[in-house]
Amino acid sequence: MRSQNEFSYGGDATVKRPDLNKEISDQEWDNFVYNRKSLRGKHWELWQHISGCRQWIKVERDTATHEIFMTLKANEEISL
């Protein structure tokens, strides 16, 4: 169990940057940069253990109860 103070938030983990060298529409950029679902309930998000091992992780957390269901390494794919 680690203190919440050691972690820094990195936002929605399901957002993917559009592929390099691909023709990208304004809408795709909008979805990447600005548009977010931000729903009540289960939410996959990025956290960094900034005052510790400095690893980025993906966390599935409930945005209403803060219950954590699952964690993944940053390079592991979320299977929805």
Partner: peptide
């Protein structure tokens, strides 16, 4: 962090 908790930490 994204939250609907209506109470803080």
């Amino acid at each position: 962090y994204n939250s609907y908790a209506q109470r803080g930490n």
